[in-house]
């Protein structure tokens, strides 16, 4: 994407540097998701529970985008951190610690510890080996949760969770009104963190690692260290997402650690667009709303329609919805 300034003469020096130095500034369209989300609260009154799920899942997909889209770390085991966060919050809630915000903190911390520890091992590899190893980490954790049923509830799932009202005031109601606002606010904070990272020098260096790892070594970047840092941060955000789902559904099962959970997340991100920060905000609602609709219209066969939609995206809409929009805008501008 080139800018409209024409560099060259000394006069343009400032224009070029300004254009480059101002990329991180907020653009008007970045307010759209939040305006929409706030508006939907009033329009779709009966869908607040689904809305809360969508926001939590957007946070999950956003954390994955930091890895796949920005650092170029492709993983098939991101559910590991989601699950650890969900179980951390759930186990606290089922054992008498019912305050939700401290649960979030513990969930994020637990997920980041698992992210750091597993990252130290798996990030030494790349490509298919890395895919396999991330998958194995999630599978091991799932098996651990299955076997350790005295704490996790095993295959029955964790039952008997109790969550206090937020700040002792806002109760989690049956209709998801509180959950909607709560998940939206946590997502907003997660988005601020992710956005800040993406535009920071650290985030730019991650893009460098994605584009050309060898070159990053050659300019003296501690590549492995950077990967572990972003892996840990991403794990923490995924853990937050898991905790949100656990708190708002009052249920944690083995499926939170499943391969299908990781795979589905990648699908949602690909539909929206990878590496553009807002792919998660488009792909997740599209997928989850489509899932909600299809499963009501065609309860048995709905995965087929999702699959067909995916093939369409991969063949005709490279770069997801955002990729298509970007190309369309470029063409429109260059006319």
């Amino acid at each position: 994407m080139t800018d409209s300034v024409s560099p060259g003469s000394p006069v343009d020096r400032k224009a070029v540097i300004d254009a480059f130095a101002r990329r991180h500034r907020f653009k008007w369209y970045e307010a759209l998701p939040w305006v929409l989300a706030a508006g939907c609260y009033f329009i779709f009154d009966g869908y607040h529970a689904l809305g809360a799920q969508i926001f939590a899942t957007i946070l999950f997909a956003l954390s994955l985008d930091l890895l796949i889209g920005f650092a170029g770390i492709v993983t098939l085991g991101h559910a590991a951190f989601f699950g650890v966060g969900a179980y951390a919050a759930g186990i606290m809630a089922a054992n008498g610690w019912q305050e939700p915000l401290s649960q979030l903190v513990v969930a994020a911390a637990a997920a980041s510890v698992v992210g750091f520890a597993s990252g130290m091992i798996v990030l030494r590899t790349a490509g298919l080996t890395l895919l396999m190893q991330t998958l194995v980490v999630a599978a091991l954790l799932q098996e651990l949760a299955n076997k350790w049923s005295s704490v996790t509830g095993g295959s029955d799932g964790l039952l008997g969770m109790k969550i206090d009202p937020i700040f002792g005031v806002f109760r989690f109601d049956l209709f998801g009104h509180t959950a909607y606002v709560y998940c939206l606010l946590v997502l907003f904070i997660g988005w601020l963190i992710a956005r800040n990272i993406v535009y920071s020098p650290f985030g730019r260096s991650l893009t460098g690692i994605r584009e050309n790892t060898n070159r990053m070594h050659a300019i003296g970047a501690p590549v492995d260290q950077r990967k572990i840092v972003i892996y840990t941060i991403s794990a923490a955000l995924a853990g937050l997402s898991g905790a949100l789902i656990a708190q708002t559904t009052a249920l944690v099962g083995l499926n939170t650690l499943a391969l299908s959970k990781s795979g589905e997340l990648i699908i949602m991100l690909v539909i929206g667009g990878v590496g553009q920060l807002y792919g998660a905000f488009i792909g997740v609602p599209l997928y989850m709303i489509a899932q909600d609709r299809f499963s009501q219209i065609d309860p048995i066969f709905w995965y087929f329609w999702i699959g067909l939609f995916m093939i369409f995206v991969v063949v005709f809409a490279r770069g997801g919805v955002l990729g298509v929009c970007g190309r369309f805008l470029d063409r429109w501008r260059s006319r």
Binding site: A21, N196, P201, G220, V229
Partner: peptide, 17 residues
């Protein structure tokens, strides 16, 4: 940014440097 060691900064936007 690598030479100057600011590439570890994940708090401020790159444009501020």
């Amino acid at each position: 940014a690598e030479r100057e060691g600011v590439a570890n900064d994940l708090l401020r936007p790159a444009g501020h440097h």
